[in-house]
Design a protein around this nucleic acid. Structure first.
Length: 637
RNA sequence: GCCCACGUAGCUCAGUCGGUGGAGCACUUCCUUGGUAAGGAAGAGGUCACCGGUUCAAAUCCGGUCGUGGGCUCCA
């Protein structure tokens, strides 16, 4: 038999005359030290440390704190949790249990739901299993054997998975008496889990299909050390502090009222100002880029929604009403009125592209369980536009929108991810049009060298789309900007333009939003800045406060001057000590405090305190105005 | 919509075994005029989300409705 040569990337080598496990091979390469290594890549493929090498290979150790290692650690911890659950509650049947970002889950089918005390018991049993240091043993079996094994255990969900697999060689992993169907690889033994915690229990449909049974999903997390776990839990606690729902109340930006209805935002003065600032910014940016403002009605006749396809494809999300026997639909999208603007006269190819912009308020019937602060509501306002252009102009228009998105996101300091969503099952339009549109989108992104992922079957019913997603405080992604191709609606509405050839042609339409919904964007924005808005966005930019009530008149005169400079200002002339006034202004995250006592009043100056920087000392009033104006104009964040 | 949990003063939260509800902050009044993260005192504030049931008696137990939270499904 030929010699087996194993090597590491740094060139270290070892030779063996007979097959060895990867674990043994690594031991001899690393002088017996494996402490943090839980698996290994063999010629690029991740395998267990118990994997047997039969030929020469390059090894790349996977440590517990690497990305791949953490994922494996979490996946193995999911198995340990399943073992604990079945030992404690043998009537429980298994769903699936993968690693996810920052943790893992396992889905269980059990007649009773898991209570808090049961969760604690599960956690304790897991700790015991980890202490026992049971090895994860892999075995490769045939499909028939797998069916036999899981039939004996009455694991119907596992059987369903097995039956759908084409491969006749399946992997089983066993630790103690617990056996699971699993591709692997796993950590060598249960004792290699340094720190874990169960976090929550939630319902989850089997295989993500709402027609299937709802299972109980237990979420948990595992880390390569107790310190890392603690750090992660701290991070979660910190994230909660910047939750926009909490900040929205603390900063008096908005509220919801059960009396008004779920998912309907009540903007308080400061929230309304913030939104207004963003809307003003948006209007200017759109005008700069050749968009024309238009305004459509909130209700349109039902027949129009039938014509557009919304009634057939989007009815369950719409609200309807009746006026003098005539049926109306409340708009869930803004496109219809924009098409009516286009249709109001005959268009020439010389008119195109036409870019209609509207801060359009829409209402959608979202299922009650999905409502979520400002991030998912029933009434919201989109920074919506519809671009009508010739097919030849399509690419440039998409590129223009992508650049627009990039510039706006840079202004707010956001990073984001791009996704292309393709044709869904429920859709209208010809195969040919879908193909054309689906090609145009990646083309534009590639033209700008932007990375993206594909989201199969997640497009709108009328066309494919590019989605821009932003992250909230807890790490959830929310779709904000979206660019959607549409060849269908212009046809349905008989839109046309006269081409160079004197003939009628159908224009192409792009639906697009930049911020998406003002509500959602505000929510993400609040979390992004943790409520400490840059000066240009802050609802209150300056609070002027007196040291003693002797200076109240001076405070009021300063406030007047600031208002003349278009600075948003509040005054504090309460008979409190200055420390108390500062505390209150800090809690409101106001960017600048102007503190004036007898000294400043006499000199006509101000003492400036800046959020994050502290006491800046005395300053001439004009100097302060210059400084804050600069910050506002440059939109410094 | 589905699963689980929760709903007590404007806010954050106590409230034991079923026996007519408390604290801190905020608010009002008074005192205090103090130079960079909480000065002091008094007062007011509640149909314990709502509706129904069990009970001599319900914030507490049960059912329903509304709302909220964590998820699933679905979307900006």
């Amino acid at each position: 038999m030929a010699k087996i040569v194993v090597s590491l990337a740094d060139g270290r080598q070892a030779e063996f005359n007979s097959p060895v496990t990867t674990g043994e091979a690594l031991k001899s390469l690393l002088n017996g030290k494996l402490k943090n290594i839980i698996a290994v890549k063999v010629n690029g493929e991740a395998v267990d440390l118990s994997h047997t090498l039969t030929r020469t290979a390059e090894l790349d150790p996977i440590t517990a704190d690497s990305a791949a290692g953490q994922k494996m650690l979490r996946h193995s911890t999911a198995h340990i949790m399943a073992q604990a659950v079945q030992e404690l509650y043998p009537e429980t049947r298994l769903g699936i249990g993968p690693a996810i970002e920052n943790g893992f889950y396992y889905d269980f089918d059990r007649p009773q739901s898991f209570s808090d005390t049961e969760m604690e018991k599960i956690e304790q049993r897991m700790a015991q299993i980890i202490k026992q240091d049971l090895p994860f043993r892999k075995s490769v079996i045939s499909k028939a054997e797998a069916i036999q094994t899981f039939s004996e255990k009455s694991e119907a969900y596992k059987l369903e998975l097995i039956n759908e697999l084409d491969d006749n060689r399946l992997n089983l992993y066993q630790q103690g008496d617990f056996i699971d169907l699993c591709r692997g690889p796993h950590i060598p033994s249960t004792g290699k889990v340094p720190a874990f915690k169960l976090l929550s229990v939630a319902g989850a449909y089997w295989r993500g299909n709402e027609n299937n049974k709802m299972l109980q999903r237990i979420y948990g997390t595992a880390h390569s050390s107790a310190a890392r776990l603690k750090q992660y839990l701290n991070q979660l606690a910190e994230a909660k502090k910047r939750d926009h729902r909490k900040l929205g109340q603390e900063l008096d930006l908005f509220s919801f009222s059960p009396e008004a209805g779920a998912g309907l935002v009540i903007y308080h003065p400061k929230g309304a100002i913030l939104r207004g600032i963003i809307e003003d910014f948006e209007k200017r940016e759109h005008l700069k880029r050749g968009y024309q403002p238009v305004i459509g009605p909130l209700l349109l006749k039902l027949d129009l929604w039938k014509k557009s396809g919304h009634y057939d494809n989007y009815r369950e999300n719409m609200y309807f009403t009746e006026i003098e026997g005539q049926q109306y639909g409340i708009k869930p999208m803004n496109c219809l009125a924009h098409m009516l603007v286009y249709k109001s006269r005959l268009r020439s190819y010389r008119d195109l592209p036409l870019r209609y912009f509207e801060l359009g308020t829409v209402y959608r019937h979202e299922k009650s369980g999905v409502l979520h602060g400002l991030l998912r509501v029933r009434g919201f306002t989109q920074d919506d536009a519809h671009i009508l252009c010739t097919p030849e102009q399509l690419n440039d228009e998409i590129i223009g929108i992508i650049d627009f998105v990039q510039q706006v996101m840079d202004t707010f300091g956001f990073s984001y991810t791009l996704e292309i969503s393709t044709r869904p099952e429920k859709s209208i339009g010809s195969d040919e049009d879908w193909e054309r549109a689906t090609e145009a989108l990646p083309h534009a992104l590639e033209h700008r060298g932007l990375p993206y992922t594909i989201n199969q079957g997640d497009g709108a019913f009328y066309g494919p789309k590019i989605d821009v997603k932003l992250k909230d405080a807890i790490g959830r992604w929310w779709q904000c900007a979206t660019i959607q191709c549409d060849f269908t609606l212009p046809e349905r509405f008989d839109l046309c333009y006269i081409g160079k050839d004197g003939q009628r042609h159908t224009p192409v339409m792009l639906h697009r939003v930049i911020l998406g919904a003002m509500e959602r964007f505000l929510g993400v924005l609040i979390e992004h800045y943790a409520g400490a808005f840059p000066v240009w966005l802050a609802p209150v930019q300056v609070r002027v406060m007196s040291i003693t009530n002797e200076q109240d008149d001076y405070v009021l005169s300063l406030a007047e001057k600031l208002i003349e400079h278009d600075i948003r200002v509040e005054t504090d002339t309460s008979p409190e000590k200055i420390g108390f006034k500062i505390k209150e202004a800090r809690l409101q995250k106001i960017p600048y405090m102007l503190i004036v006592g007898a000294k400043e009043k006499a000199a006509g100056s101000v003492a400036v305190r800046k959020r994050g920087a502290g006491d800046l000392g005395g300053m001439e009033f004009d100097e302060f105005i210059q400084q804050i104006d600069h910050e506002i104009n440059q939109k410094i964040h």
